[in-house]
Design a protein around this nucleic acid. Sequence first.
DNA 1: AAGGCCTACAACCGCATTCCG
DNA 2: ACGGAATGCGGTTGTAGGCCT
Length: 343
Amino acid sequence: MGRSPCCDKVGLKKGPWTSEEDQKLLAFIQEHGHGSWRALPEKAGLQRCGKSCRLRWINYLRPDIKRGKFTSQEEQTIIQLHALLGNRWSTIATLLPMRTDNEIKNHWNTHLKKRLTKMGIDPKTHKPNNQVRGSAQSKDAANLSHMAQWESARLEAEARMAREWKIVSSSQFQNNDEALWPLAPKPCRPPCLDVLKVWQGGWAKPKQEHATIFSSSFNSPNSTLKLSENISNIPSVGYGEEHASITSINCIQNLGPFEVGTSSKEENIQNDNHPGIKGRMEDSVDSTNYIADSLRVPSLMEGFTDLVVDSGNVVGSCIGDFEENKNYWNSVLTEYYEHNFKY
DNA sequence: AAGGCCTACAACCGCATTCCG
DNA sequence: ACGGAATGCGGTTGTAGGCCT
């Protein structure tokens, strides 16, 4: 029992839109809004069906859409979201501001799918294709697959957080973000999402003798694409900073053992006595360093560096082996997310 | 120069879902 | 609760423009 197509009427135009038609549609919507799409074409003087008008508006004429080349960041996001959500283009589009689902879908089909295939990754499953074991391509693909899995977990948590936050903010906290996260930046975001983001961002060294410098090839441990393009620009922990102003990430303070960084030696000493927080400064960063505008996530295990976050970047020094530190923090953060944000 | 092929992307189509009387 | 209309969504097609031979 199918419905008759809306464009069956004789005389309705199909195919590419002319600039005159665009003008008519734009002018009408700007003045009256679109209201009922079915009724719109006649009112606007267009020989088109409502569906066609709607599509033209949504995918092309709407003022809040960004056109032009996708940035590498956007591409990376699409790949990651696709790994998580599959072909749910409209959902993906909601997480890519100013891009339409159609545009994203086209970009995926014409560029990204091919790119992944070239890399030896099945664009449907985001898993490596069967390759000769031990080949460079196979190793790369396996690594990428692992990265994609890790990223999926993160994105899943993030998507859920976003949804929950939407619900919360649309109800009781709509006009009062501060009630929930008094120190959070505006527009307020859910807490904790940035922890993983900054962890992706890479590391820098506060002091040469303590730090292991990670090469610029170090990117997200989980992303399928190159992430940090400016590792060398990541700010390091400041020396002797006196202020402890609130940063864009300090809403993370609401999270369990995580602690906002300190601004003074005295405060730092106080925090050293904080139950459950083990050896703060001295473990990994020279105690003469004063951390301002930063967040320190203390390592609860001996031998691992703290995770220090400053204005959205990981700036901690690394004691011991980098891989071990990286794995340690990956497992801590993943466990945290799994524990707190499972469906 | 002309024809064929390829690529990118706008637009269409049909099914699914939501809305509303 | 039901059914039809409206809207949303994703797969697919059509076509313009660029490139190659």
